[in-house]
Design a protein around this nucleic acid. Structure first.
Lengths: 235, 235
DNA sequence: CTCACTTTGTGCACCGGTTCACAAAAGGAC
DNA sequence: GTCCTTTTGTGAACCGGTGCACAAAGTGAG
């Protein structure tokens, strides 16, 4: 029996689906460790914290890998998702900026585990250059282009101060890198074709604060709406 | 002239808008520092990296704070967004888990700067308890409930290992906290009414890898689609 | 074989969010 | 005052994503 692979995934998986595939993968790995051979969309959906219809639609974008009346083969599905995400190959990652966050990222086990390998740590501070962190030698930012080229770095993680981020991003892009994970709290501008993902701790907290405020407002009467706003507010 | 405040924001600001307000706020603060008095939606949109129509619609959810033909008053808009996000009050944050990531978060300046104050650091490891980090004494996780109560903690940041996260989340919720920022790579289950936001470094990398693979696939011909999959793949 | 049961894959209606495009409003020149 | 310019605020079309609900496809019992 021939699978119509090119039919189902001929062009483009929805972005929302791509963002959930790692979630499914993590749940599936846990199941594989516990020795489960097959799993229903319902069970996997619960484990991943999503709706089961959504899960089935997501998986249908990769191809028709389930068996009606049975479910999905855990190992096979792990392989298919891994391949789709590109985790069957080895990605060399460079971390720029070895402050507290950069250090944390370098030591973060989750990076190394599946497909990703921290291939370089770079910093501008001569005080930090030469340090050994997570088995790696911290190199000077001047070496950026050479390191990217020599070690085949294709993903760069920016953990620099905000002021340095754009400048480093420009050099990284010029060196041919097209995937950047940015932890600096700035809006980076990069040419078309370069993918940027942003993780912003303070934004996450502010969103939480908004909802928290709503919750507490509700219990203590409506908000006081001043017509004039306090002129001497210190922001 | 009386502003119809309760009209525009009578109930609920769209979630997508809330997520962008911190972005606008950051851009506005930069402009205030540079001494700008007013700003047009176009300029602010560019600084925040969004479409100007979207920005205007977002701001219109807070009220009608612009002046046609002129733009927005920078200071006034900063105040309105800050108030809407709940940043005019002081939020006590506890960080649970003082590993590399917890340490990085504790030292992260962006937390303290606007409205947030790290009020406690907690860990289960006796080796770490008693350490001084970022001017705070690391306390034992047994003190969790007491610390939350005594210091009025309303937001908890989870930076624990994955296995401990759910357990800590349960205790935190039982202690009355309803806002959690989770860095552990697990799907937490919490009762209705508790807000969870999740930051997952490895998921971000996997999404980047997916797009990176697409880009490189395109340059080196279509992907080779094996009908049989390698049986002895090591995942 | 047929029948009963399970579970996938998907058509379709719905919904939140984005974007365009423009009327309404404000300011300035005269 | 009128006219022209600028920029906001929003109606309406559009678009991607969600979830219901069900037909199709598979298993297993008899």
């Amino acid at each position: 029996m021939i699978r119509r692979l090119s039919q189902a995934r001929e062009r483009g998986i929805p972005e929302a689906t791509v963002a959930r595939l790692p979630l499914y993968l993590r749940a599936l790995n846990g199941m594989a460790e516990r020795g489960l051979a097959t799993v229903s969309s319902e069970d996997l959906a619960v484990a991943a914290g999503v709706n089961s219809a959504k899960l089935r639609k997501d998986l249908s974008h990769l191809g028709s890998y389930g068996t009606r009346g049975v479910g999905y083969d855990v190992e096979y599905l792990i392989y298919q998702i891994s391949r789709e995400l590109g985790l069957t190959q080895d990605w060399a990652v460079a971390i720029v900026g070895v402050g507290n966050l950069g250090r944390a990222l370098a030591n973060y086990g989750g990076f190394v585990s599946r497909g990703f390998r921290v291939a370089a740590l770079l910093d501008a501070d001569p005080e930090v250059v030469g340090d050994h962190i997570a088995g790696l030698n911290v190199e000077h930012i001047d070496e950026l282009e050479a390191v990217i080229r020599r070690r085949g770095v294709s993903i760069v993680v920016l953990a620099t101060p905000a002021v340095a981020a754009q400048q480093v991003a420009d050099r990284v892009v010029a060196a041919g890198v097209t995937s950047i994970l940015n932890f600096a709290p700035v809006v980076l501008s990069v040419p078309e074709g370069v993918d940027i993902r942003k993780v912003d701790l303070s934004i996450e907290l502010q969103i939480l604060a908004f909802h928290e405020q709503r919750k507490t407002d509700r219990t203590s009467g409506g908000p006081a709406m001043a017509e004039e706003w306090p002129e001497a507010v210190d922001l």
